[in-house]
Lab assay of single mutants.
Amino acid sequence: MLEGKVKWFNSEKGFGFIEVEGQDDVFVHFSAIQGEGFKTLEEGQAVSFEIVEGNRGPQAANVTKEA
């Protein structure tokens, strides 16, 4: 699992990017966010995740919000 911070997330469109120190930003789709209820992320929020190869390159999977 990697750790990063949410760079930005558009809850209307359901996607955004996660910043990872020393690496390129990683695309995140709302469907990759773990948990119940409305799936969104806040700018600057700490998250842990895995990287998988998507249709358009690397993207986040199994995203969990850090306490």
Rank of each mutant, 00 (worst) to 15 (best):
K39R: 11
T64V: 15
G57H: 05
F30K: 12
L41E: 00
G4S: 01
F27A: 05
G54V: 04
E42I: 11
A60L: 02
L2Y: 15
L41Y: 03
G22P: 02
E66D: 12
V20M: 12
E21R: 11
V52A: 10
Q23P: 03
K39C: 07
E66T: 13
E19C: 13
Q23I: 10
S48N: 12
E3W: 11
F15R: 04
E42V: 13
K39G: 07
G16P: 00
Q34N: 14
N55Q: 14
I18F: 02
V26K: 03
V20D: 02
K13H: 09
G16K: 00
E19F: 06
K39H: 05
A32N: 10
A32W: 01
M1R: 10
I51Q: 09
F15W: 15
A60R: 00
H29M: 02
E21P: 13
F15Y: 14
V47N: 02
V47E: 00
F17Y: 08
L41C: 04
Q59S: 08
K13L: 09
G14V: 00
E43T: 15
V26G: 02
F27G: 03
A61F: 15
G35W: 06
L41W: 03
V26A: 04
V47R: 01
P58K: 14
E50I: 11
K5S: 10
I33G: 03
Q34G: 08
W8T: 08
K65E: 07
F38D: 10
E66C: 14
G4D: 01
A32L: 02
E36V: 11
I51V: 12
I51E: 04
G35Y: 04
F38S: 09
F9D: 01
F38M: 10
E19L: 09
V26T: 06
P58M: 13
F17R: 05
E36L: 11
F15I: 09
Q23H: 09
A67I: 08
P58C: 09
E19V: 08
V47I: 06
E50T: 14
D24H: 12
F17K: 10
I33H: 03
S11M: 07
G22N: 10
E19W: 05
Q23G: 13
G22V: 00
S31Y: 02
M1C: 07
S31T: 13
V52Y: 03
L41D: 02
K39E: 06
E36G: 14
V26Y: 04
V26F: 04
A67V: 15
V6C: 08
A67F: 04
G37Y: 05
D25E: 07
F27P: 07
G16N: 00
G16S: 01
Q34P: 05
S48R: 15
I18Y: 01
V63I: 05
V63H: 00
Q59Y: 14
H29D: 05
F30V: 10
F27D: 02
K65F: 12
V47A: 02
N10H: 10
V63T: 00
A46W: 11
F38C: 11
K7N: 04
A61M: 09
G57T: 04
V20H: 08
G14P: 00
K5Y: 11
E21F: 08
D24P: 14
V47G: 00
E42L: 12
A67C: 13
S11W: 07
G14Q: 04
G14N: 03
G44S: 07
V52D: 06
D25N: 07
Q34W: 05
S31E: 06
E3D: 14
V6P: 00
E53P: 07
I51F: 07
T40Q: 12
F49D: 01
E53R: 14
T40R: 12
D25R: 03
I51C: 10
G35T: 11
G37T: 08
G22K: 09
P58E: 06
T40N: 10
E3S: 14
F49S: 01
I18W: 00
E36S: 13
K5P: 00
E66N: 15
F27K: 04
M1K: 09
V26R: 02
F30D: 05
V52E: 10
V63S: 01
N55M: 12
G37Q: 08
G16A: 02
E42Q: 15
I51T: 06
H29N: 04
K65S: 12
R56D: 04
F38A: 12
V28P: 01
Q45T: 10
Q59N: 04
Q34H: 11
A46M: 14
I18Q: 00
F15C: 06
V47P: 00
G44I: 00
A61H: 14
A61S: 12
E19T: 12
E36K: 15
F9C: 03
E42A: 13
E36N: 15
V20F: 05
L41P: 02
V63F: 01
L41Q: 00
L2W: 13
E21T: 14
F30W: 15
G22R: 09
T40F: 13
V63Y: 00
L2S: 09
V52C: 12
F30S: 11
E36F: 10
E42H: 10
E53M: 15
G44H: 07
H29K: 05
G44D: 09
H29C: 02
V52P: 02
N55S: 13
G57I: 04
G4K: 01
L41T: 02
E42T: 11
P58A: 12
L2F: 13
P58H: 08
A60D: 00
V52K: 13
K7H: 03
Q45L: 05
Q59C: 12
E42G: 09
E12H: 15
V26D: 01
G4P: 00
F27Q: 05
M1F: 10
L41V: 06
F38G: 09
A46G: 12
K39N: 07
P58R: 14
E53T: 13
I33M: 05
I51S: 04
V28Q: 02
R56I: 04
W8M: 09
